[in-house]
Design a protein around this nucleic acid. Structure first.
Length: 300
DNA sequence: TCACATGATTTTTA
DNA sequence: TAAAAATCATGTGA
């Protein structure tokens, strides 16, 4: 249709004395024939999703009253500053989004009303179309909330990931753990009770004891395998290191790689010592580290 | 600055 | 579900 003709045609339809009657007739017929498909709008999933995100946002203090935890705030001022800026950004995004949602909804209703003058749109069809628009906006809202939640997760990872605040254990703690490992080299799996005892003795958590043994076992195994592989290439075998225990195979494959210079052995349980082989280590030279004045690991 | 050591986390496996 | 294995991120010493 020529664009110049359209307003004229619309005007002539509007001024037609039978316009209203015809329109009502067509809408009624359409409703009777059930031409409008009753769409099943799946809102449940979106609603659940949004609910979950709302709970998380509340828990993290991004909505509702800001969380007031003076202790953690003073401990992590940088984290709290970042959290506040995430909250501000989120509030701004949501405000902008709400304004757009309202404006679009109004415009859409106006368009529907205008269309309704020239083609039969049932109330049901109109409701469905508005609902569809609302659903699309809900999806956008979920995305905005999801993004804010992800920002908080990244922030937490950045400030509270223990890997970033890792500190080496004190030399004494490492020695205690190593001693136990070496003394139980055939089965380095401490019982829960032993783990607790070691944790107390080393001034670390039971979880840290578990981590330490997990790492130690896997790395011991790896080093041992690498040593074997080397000995295949060199059938004569690498020069054996003196065994500090005076019996059995070398229990220090990891600490004393084959061919490495003779080290000072760390202290180990008296019942395993053969005095003639034992060399008490010199106290380590002071170097800047994470240990405190007691040589203790500083907790993250 | 770089390579290696080491504690923690995540993923896979039994 | 604990342990193994892989991976990450930081500490450390040359």
């Amino acid at each position: 249709m020529d664009t110049d003709e359209r307003p004229k045609l619309q005007q002539s339809i509007r001024t037609n004395p039978f316009h209203r009657v015809i329109q009502e007739c067509l809408v009624g017929t359409k409703e009777k024939l059930s031409i409008v498909k009753h769409e099943i709008i799946e809102e449940t999933k979106d609603a659940e999703n949004e609910n979950r995100l709302n709970n998380m946002l509340r828990a993290e203090g991004l909505v509702g009253p800001p969380l007031e935890d003076k202790e953690s705030e003073s401990k992590n001022p940088e984290y709290h500053a970042n959290l506040i800026s995430v909250r501000k950004r989120f509030e701004l995004d949501m405000k902008e989004f709400e304004a757009k949602r309202v404006a679009f909804r109004d415009d859409f209703k106006k368009i529907l009303h205008t269309h309704g003058e020239f083609r039969p749109i049932t109330h049901n069809a109109s409701d469905i179309m508005i609902k569809r628009v609302d659903n699309d906006f809900t999806k956008v809202a979920i995305e905005i909330k999801q993004q804010a939640c992800e920002e908080v997760i990244q922030l937490k990872k950045r400030f509270f990931d223990a890997r970033r605040t890792r500190r080496n254990f004190s030399r004494e703690a490492t020695n205690i753990l190593t001693d136990y490992f070496e003394a139980n080299i055939n089965h380095p799996y401490p019982s829960e009770e032993t783990k607790h005892a070691l944790a107390v003795k080393c001034n670390i958590s039971v979880q840290q004891v578990c981590n330490w043994f997990g790492n130690k076992r896997i790395r011991y195994k790896k080093t041992k395998a690498e040593g074997k592989e080397k000995s295949v290439h060199n059938p004569q075998g690498p020069p054996m290191m003196p065994n500090p225990y005076g019996f059995g195979p070398n229990p220090y494959p990891m600490m004393m790689p084959f061919g490495a210079p003779q080290p000072n052995f760390p202290s180990f349980p008296p019942h395993l010592m053969t005095p003639c082989h034992f060399v008490k280590p010199e106290p380590p030279s002071e170097s800047p580290s994470s240990e405190d004045s007691n040589g203790q690991n500083v907790a993250p």
